[in-house]
């Protein structure tokens, strides 16, 4: 994992294993085409800034194709549960 400058998380607009949708369309149209998560379907791919083992990196879901992934959302750092 290369160390990266800070940025924003952004869905690539494709599901894992497929090429990202071209970034030419209007943002609103892109939003409509965005894959949403559904059990039994391919996971929507995303790329996000991350902290990993002492470094600031970028993590991309589709980089883990071929492995099992546990994707965990949670309300926030330093919350109690």
């Amino acid at each position: 994992m290369a160390e990266n400058a800070a940025g924003c998380a952004r869905p690539t607009g494709a599901v894992v294993g497929e090429k990202s949708a071209p970034a030419k369309e209007e943002p609103i149209i892109k939003e409509k085409k965005m894959a949403t998560a559904r059990v039994g379907a391919k996971a929507p791919d995303f790329e996000a800034p991350a902290y990993y083992k002492g470094k600031f990196t970028t993590v991309k879901l589709s980089d883990f194709l071929g492995k099992w992934v546990m994707l965990c959302f949670y309300p926030g750092d330093f919350t109690f549960v």
Binding site: V39, A41, F46, L61, L65, W68, M70, L71, P75
Partner: peptide
Amino acid sequence: IYGVYDENAGVELRGRFIIDPDGIIQ
């Protein structure tokens, strides 16, 4: 896109997804 963002609170709910090696959410 994973349906776990709480727009009102501006935080993420506790969503846990198991994704298989083919990229399918199981």
